[in-house]
Write a protein that binds this DNA or RNA. Structure first.
Lengths: 270, 270
DNA sequence: GCGATCAGCGGCACG
DNA sequence: CGTGCCGTTGATCGC
């Protein structure tokens, strides 16, 4: 790219900047080549979008950005929202001239769906070769917090000992399975953010399963930074327990700041 | 843009295409102006990304595309996945030269978080004025299906009638509240896709709430195109019912193809 | 602002 | 493949 060429043109002919269009034939060849080479393709133009599949949608004429990635993900972006307006993963992509328009189609079976993007004009189209072998490293996931917690469950209550973590059951995975001082089994469910009623029903379900399989009294403790009011009610109705869990995201691993356990004895419930 | 300029350069100097870089100062001014004007900004370059907030992440050096939109959404895209690797909504954005690098920062409070993108080189940076007043129109959402169903509940079972014109419960909480021929209340939960155990616990919760408030026998019917095996078991254990719900996405509204109700009498349960 | 819930959820891991 | 479930879930609507 020639330095300053674009901005130069824009500053001289500000009011006409938007009339510099690309021939659709040229765009078509850029697109076809990019898709074939699995490059990152960026197309900006005036278009109309239709989707048919799991649902159906129409996006009236307007200017959008089409982003096609090397893994055949296909996304129409408007100038708002993180998420694309229309999208498809693992799309089979075609691109052809139809009269005065350039029509891109993304299709997929299983589930069967299709996106049709009809470009009336294209302002910009460019492919980028994206050498990038790196992968993101994320810290502070729920699994990581569970593992951290496993190190010392006495934060939750004295004498609580870890038995297993991430133990797969017939259905779902129990975050932590532990044993309290009285020899009861304790199912611990960890949530990285404010727990809602779904977390409670999830824990209840696991707890009952474990109780059934192991055939001995089992408690359920939900650990989260906070819990929603109605979730709290549901939890207490179900005889489950909640423990507040403050943490700070650290590097290389999360740091547990402290745990305040709500005082609620098993005997209260039974 | 001059027609053919880009592809021309690429075809002549294929092997050197990637060495055409932009001065960071120039990129900086493009970026600053785009952010100020709420244009759609697209930057491609070699960078390193750090995130700190609800979690923490590091993305090692590599070539990515940064997309900043008019609503201050900020997204780093790799050449894979629909979703950005790093992102932020409603970001406060800064952009400054730091030594040999151009550093973009996106920050936010509530929750407090920040993304730092350190560009070592920038291959491309361009802002697009995105005149686009149109909004997507989507058909086939759960709400729409509920409304469709409301028209004629006899599809589910003969004599089933909407209980009240206006449900006394908060909108959206109970999909449909109806009354069967025997005068029982019926809570109907509609799912647009294969129902899982969460749909069952949700229905159970609503059903019990309604039963408690109204003080009369209440049934719960889950309506979905399909249901998972263990969700089915849970549902039957809870004395709830399932009705298959085939539909076709149509325009302007979804068409219900038919409903096959599983024969399961209330008396069976009570 | 928080709460609740849907989403064409996407993405990942596991069986 | 389906199944389950987390996510920096995002996005929307109601309060």
């Amino acid at each position: 790219m020639r330095r300053g060429q674009q901005t130069g043109a824009n500053s001289i002919k500000k009011n006409f900047a938007s009339i510099y269009f690309m021939q659709l034939e040229q765009a078509q060849s850029i697109i076809a080549e990019a898709v074939q080479k699995k490059q990152l393709l960026c197309v900006v133009g005036n278009c109309f979008v239709e989707y048919w599949g799991r649902a159906a949608s129409k996006l009236p004429k307007g200017k959008r950005m089409l982003l096609i990635k090397g893994d055949s993900s296909f996304a129409i972006h408007q100038n708002k929202n993180l998420r694309p307006t229309n999208y498809m993963m693992n799309a089979a992509i075609s691109c052809e001239l139809q009269g005065e328009n350039l029509v891109l189609k993304a299709t997929k079976r299983k589930p069967k769906e299709s996106i049709t993007v009809t470009f009336y004009s294209i302002e910009f189209a460019k492919a980028f070769e994206m050498e990038d072998s790196a992968d993101i490293r994320l810290f502070g996931s729920e699994t990581e917090l569970s593992r951290e917690l496993m190190q010392d469950l006495s934060f939750i209550e004295p004498g609580l000992k870890p038995a297993q973590s991430e133990c797969p059951f017939r259905k779902g995975v129990v975050d932590i399975l532990a044993e309290d001082v009285e020899g009861n089994l304790v199912v611990v469910e960890v949530k990285r953010r404010k727990a809602d009623y779904k977390a409670v029903t999830q824990l209840e379900r696991y707890m009952k399963q474990v109780e059934k399989i192991k055939g001995k009294r089992t408690r359920g403790i939900l650990i989260a930074p906070d819990i929603q009011k109605n979730a709290r009610e549901l939890l207490e109705e179900s005889g489950l327990e909640f423990a507040k869990f403050d943490f700070e995201i650290g590097n290389p691993k999360a740091k547990i700041k402290g745990i305040k356990k709500k005082q609620r004895d098993l005997k209260e419930f039974f």
